[in-house]
Amino acid sequence: MSSHRKYDFKHLHYVGQDGKLIPELQRAQEEDGYIKPEKIREIHERYGIPLSHIFGVATFYSQFRLDPVGKNIIRVCHGTACHVAGAKEITRSLEDILEIKSGGTTEDRLFTLETVSCLGCCSLAPVIMINDDTYGNLKPGDLKKIIKDYRKREAAEVAQK
């Protein structure tokens, strides 16, 4: 049986799978930091969802990445409150410190710099989030130390190995 047979085109509804696609993509990204082409194929084979559809969904949502990223993801909030509190300066300083542009990854693959709209801590604007940790009330001058701490931790980890 072709794997497409499980797919009910009329209702765009995966028989027996209540909307598994997005959680599956989220899991794939959690494992590798981005969605590897193999994973897309795997999901296609397991659920019979057409590749075009998977790709369509993966490119629609800003959370999904199709390219490898650094170990630590820095997200600079550019929401309203952070914008009026100087988020531009924060991004600029981080760009200077990391020597990359927003959206890029450092050569050592330690950091990826991104922007997001509102992290929900607007009263502490400007705010950034590194992985799942939030830093608020930032001044451009605070960033050097924060980044240094991550680099130190990484060095310690490498030394331990």
């Binding site: 929401g79 309203t80 409150a81 952070c82 709209s117 509102c118 929900g120 801590c121 607007c122 009263s123």
Partner: peptide, 11 residues
Amino acid sequence: DEGDPGAFMDR
């Protein structure tokens, strides 16, 4: 989904 930048009461 609280997407409005500047809103955080739902969170």
